[in-house]
Simulated assay, not measured.
Amino acid sequence: MLIRQTILAHMEWFSINNENTAELPDEEILRRSQTKPWLYEILVNRYQTAFLRKAIGIIRDEEDAQEIVQDTFTKIYVNANSFTPHAGAKFSSWAYRILLNTTFTYYQKKLKQGQRFMVFDPDFEQLVADKSVFDEEEVRDAVERILARLPGHFAFVLRLHYLEHWSHKDIAEKTGEQVGTIKARIHRAKNAFRKESNTKEIELIL
């Protein structure tokens, strides 16, 4: 097994370097990564440090920031088809918008938990101002519609974790399962959630 993994790793490395993909623009790498998933690592390497710095600057918690960045990269990859390159449209701007929206979700969660903190980020402050015009009930209704289309065990953990703000540990205690099992299920459930969302719902929730 180890030998096979080593061979595959070398094949992927050779494929990446042989095509000079490291020199390709972000938009082209994103497009190619849909059929060659290993290429997506190039985008992750390009942006993860800056994304993490941005998220930490807003949330002030490195562990939450790391989860935000992970969720952001998942959203970018799963929703790659919703990005349409055209004059003036850059991958970086689109990706940062997803990062800020994902951070905003965590920011709201922290506020509901009673946490208060100062944010000195003009991009995020503008996003908060823009988000205030949306009807929170409309967003929640969109989420509930998607959850209703998911398998019950996925909808259950997503509803508890994101809508009711239960921790992984609390859900594990309720179900009698291991925390690691719950984390893995939530990860799979999030992917299923995004695949089940239509374009209009994605624009509302992202």
Rank of each mutant, 00 (worst) to 15 (best):
Glu137Lys: 09
Lys200Val: 11
Leu158Pro: 01
Ile186Asn: 05
Pro151Arg: 13
Ala192Lys: 03
Leu206Glu: 14
Ala50Arg: 01
Ser33Cys: 09
Ile171Ser: 02
Asp123His: 10
Asn45Ile: 04
Ala9Val: 02
Asp130Ala: 14
Ala89Thr: 04
Arg60Leu: 05
Ile7Leu: 07
Arg145Thr: 13
Pro151Thr: 12
Ile186Met: 07
Arg188Lys: 14
Leu163His: 00
Thr74Cys: 08
Leu127Glu: 00
Arg145Ile: 05
Ala148Leu: 06
Val69Ser: 10
Pro122Asp: 10
Leu147Cys: 00
Arg194Asp: 02
Glu28Tyr: 03
Gly180Thr: 11
Lys109Gln: 12
Ala155Leu: 01
Lys36Gln: 03
Phe73Lys: 00
Leu206Pro: 02
Arg46His: 04
Ser15His: 05
Arg53Leu: 07
Asp121Val: 14
Ile42Pro: 01
Arg159Lys: 08
Ile7Gly: 06
Ala148Val: 10
Leu99Tyr: 02
Ser197Tyr: 00
Ile205Tyr: 07
Gln48Glu: 07
Asn20Thr: 13
Asp26Cys: 06
Ile56Trp: 10
Met11His: 09
Glu203Cys: 12
Val78Leu: 04
Arg60Val: 00
Ile29Arg: 02
Gln108Asn: 12
Leu163Cys: 02
Val157Ser: 07
Gln34Trp: 10
Asn101Glu: 15
Glu23His: 09
Thr199Ala: 09
Ala65Arg: 14
Arg53His: 11
Ile29Tyr: 04
Lys169Arg: 13
Ser15Glu: 07
Tyr77Trp: 12
Val179Gly: 00
Val119Trp: 11
Lys54Trp: 01
His187Phe: 15
Glu28Gly: 02
Asn79Phe: 05
Glu173Cys: 06
His86Tyr: 07
Glu12Asn: 08
Gln108Ser: 06
Glu27Ala: 11
Lys110Met: 02
Gly180Lys: 13
Thr6Ala: 08
Ile7Arg: 06
Leu147Val: 04
Leu147Thr: 01
Tyr107Gln: 00
Ile7Asp: 01
Arg194Glu: 03
Phe156Asn: 11
Glu67Trp: 01
Asn191Cys: 03
Asp141Glu: 06
Ala189Ser: 14
His10Ala: 13
Lys90Ser: 12
Asp121Gln: 12
Glu164Phe: 12
Met11Val: 04
Ser167Ala: 08
Phe73His: 01
Glu173Asp: 15
Pro122Thr: 03
Gln178Pro: 05
Trp166Lys: 12
Phe193Glu: 00
Glu63Tyr: 11
Arg185Cys: 13
Val157Gly: 07
Lys183Tyr: 05
Ile171Asn: 04
His153Ile: 14
Gln70Ser: 08
Lys174Met: 11
Thr103Phe: 07
Arg97His: 08
Gly180Asn: 07
Ala129Gly: 08
